[in-house]
Design a protein around this nucleic acid. Structure first.
Length: 545
RNA sequence: GCGCCCUUAGCUCAACUGGAUAGAGCGUCUGACUACGGAUCAGGAGGUUAUGGGUUCGACUCCCGUAGGGCGCACCA
């Protein structure tokens, strides 16, 4: 409905001699400012060096709007033009929600793109912790938001299974095997001390027999590497699946090496004259492309820095034909962004090809106290344990309810509570209540007709709720554009509040027949919107709780 | 020392590429249960948006300075 209005405003703007003004037409915060408002006159005033209020009056007098679209127009404040939509528009919106059903809130962008969202990408050196959980929830939700805009999305996991960390992991496991076999081999410096490796060592000895510990060291370490990586990967996949996240593609760093992608990347950079040798190392001329310094690609000792396979990986994603690539990274990696951006720029990729969504720290709070975590000592809250304790829905919601670039206090007690204090519960409860109406009435909600009249919503709460529901598509679009799923969470709380309020004040069943029909339609629309929003975030929409 | 992010109500957080009187939840105070789930609802109090300047018709939002917090500044990953 706002599209038609937007177009008409643009037409009048052109008529007044303005070239593409990017004005906004949006729902004002204040209800007394109408259903939609535009700042067009104020922007035009700047361009045409004229008085904004006078221009606003002029615009209004030139607008040709059907009475079925806009009921009332006014000029207000410094030059805003406020619009009150005709009743038909609200009923039209109710039809839209119900007709679209599970698709309500989705859009179709003009040009669907192929996106790759890479997230979690934890080293296969141990169990996933709560920080990975936040990244998993965020990456998955961003992917869904993009899909809701009509894009094609690949969810991808990158396994760093080739670096020195893996080497340390393999040697740590080998040491645990020796210890389990009665030896005294210490865990190497900078190795992994977590109990899980000791457990794994015991399993290996039981399965493979004690001869395993007698293998020549290099063979043993190599076997340990394979066993450790595959076991850790399997465990991570289990945890992620339990968290409701599945990946379309898993890319292995080792595989990139085996496919010659890493060497090819190095060769291409050199061929393009983007590298140079100095101090016995090979450098990338990244400072010419926006990085604050040049970066080493091949060290003095002849080995490659981690940057090279990472770069090769992004080139490989580009080769696979993605229009856009988003990496979800922990905020501690933010210093790494400029060099990756510079390298991709040097290769001539589009500036918009690569983007990063940063995830800040998660603090676990229990009983009002922060739970201290330290990865070094192997003492941290795992994603597995958290999901076990609070459930998938609460965990996902809590990870998503704040902007990803602000630190998150995850209150475990709150996440578990079954009261209105808990936002997940509050939102899901609103959905369950709507379902409850149909359950009690013995009606299938999908059969309720939207064919009702606005005057059959005598109470303000009903109109408020309906107006709130109509905002969903634009909220979803904006959330997708900004890669900010928390906007959906805020919106859902808003809708849930309006739903509870309406429910409390307006009894549906037993109202006069026309009113009951109208309210049933509204209940159906609210249920659809709540369910779609919850689904978008990867949560369930229960019919009873 | 340099760079990036953050600082909004007592607490946790919102605020639509700069818009009108900065909004929610929790907590606090006052009220509402013969009903589709009161597992809820209605209302009040609570703010110099860290701070000082600047740009603008208009600034939480953009620019500069200051204070406080986080993170990063490897031929580590």
């Amino acid at each position: 409905m706002s599209d038609a209005l937007h177009a008409e405003l643009a037409r009048v703007a052109r008529e007044l001699g303005a070239e593409d003004v990017s004005f906004v037409l949006e729902r004002p915060r204040e209800a007394s400012h109408g259903d939609l408002a535009t700042n067009l006159a104020m922007l035009l005033a700047k361009q045409l060096k004229s008085n904004p209020r006078a221009l606003a009056e002029q615009i209004v007098s030139r607008l040709e709007l059907a009475p079925s679209l806009v009921a009332k127009t006014e000029v207000a404040g410094p030059g805003f033009i406020n619009f009150w939509l005709a009743d038909e528009q609200l009923i039209e919106a109710l039809h839209t929600i119900i007709d679209q059903g599970p698709r309500y809130g989705r859009s179709e962008v003009d040009k669907p793109l192929s996106w790759n969202v890479e997230f979690v990408s934890a080293n296969p050196t141990g169990p996933l912790h709560v920080g990975h959980g936040r990244g998993a929830a965020l990456g998955d939700a961003i992917a869904s938001l993009l899909e809701w805009q009509g894009h094609t999305v690949t969810r991808e996991f990158y396994v760093n299974d080739a670096g020195s960390q893996i080497d340390k992991l393999a040697r740590s496991l080998w040491a645990r095997v020796q210890q389990a076999a009665g030896g005294e081999t210490p865990i190497p410096d900078g190795g992994y001390h977590g109990q899980y490796l000791a457990d794994m060592a015991a399993e290996i000895l039981q399965r493979e027999g004690s001869a395993f510990a007698q293998l020549p060291e290099e063979d043993g370490v190599a076997r340990c590497r394979e066993l450790a990586v595959s076991a850790q990967r399997a465990e991570q996949d289990r945890d992620l699946l339990a968290f409701g996240v599945r990946f379309d593609t898993v890319t292995s760093e080792q595989q990139l090496y085996r496919d010659g992608r890493v060497d090819a990347a190095l060769a291409l950079l050199t061929e393009r004259d983007l590298t140079y040798e100095a101090d016995g190392a090979l450098w990338l001329k990244s400072s010419q492309f926006g990085d604050d310094q040049n970066r080493v690609l091949r060290k003095q000792d002849g080995s490659l820095t981690y940057f090279v396979p990472d770069l090769a990986y992004h080139m490989e994603k580009h080769d696979r034909g993605f229009d856009r690539v988003i990496d979800v990274w922990g905020a501690d990696h933010h210093g790494y962004i400029p060099r990756m951006r510079a390298a991709l720029r040097a290769l001539g990729y589009s500036e918009r090809f690569f983007d990063v969504a940063l995830v800040q720290l998660v603090k676990i709070v229990r009983g009002g106290e922060e739970v201290k975590m330290s990865k070094r000592s192997g003492d941290f809250v795992t994603l597995h344990d958290l999901v076990e304790e609070v459930g998938v829905d609460a965990a996902r919601y809590f990870f998503l309810m704040r902007r990803s670039d602000s630190q998150l206090n995850f209150d475990v007690d709150l996440a578990k509570s079954q009261t209105e204090d808990n936002p997940v519960f509050y939102v899901q409860m609103a959905h369950a209540r709507m379902s409850g109406i149909f359950r009690v009435a013995g009606l299938d909600p999908d059969t309720v007709s939207p064919d009702v009249r606005l005057q059959d919503f005598p109470a303000k709460e009903g109109i408020d709720l309906l107006k709130k529901l109509t905002a969903f598509p634009s909220i979803a679009t904006r959330a997708a554009r900004e890669l900010e799923p928390h906007r959906i969470a805020s919106y859902l709380e808003d809708v849930a509040r309006a739903t509870h309020s309406w429910y409390h004040n307006c009894r549906v069943l037993g109202a006069p027949p026309e009113v009951e029909r109208a309210r049933l339609a509204l209940a159906r629309a609210a249920r659809i919107t709540l369910a779609n929003g919850l689904t978008l975030l990867g949560l369930s929409a229960p019919d009873r709780m």
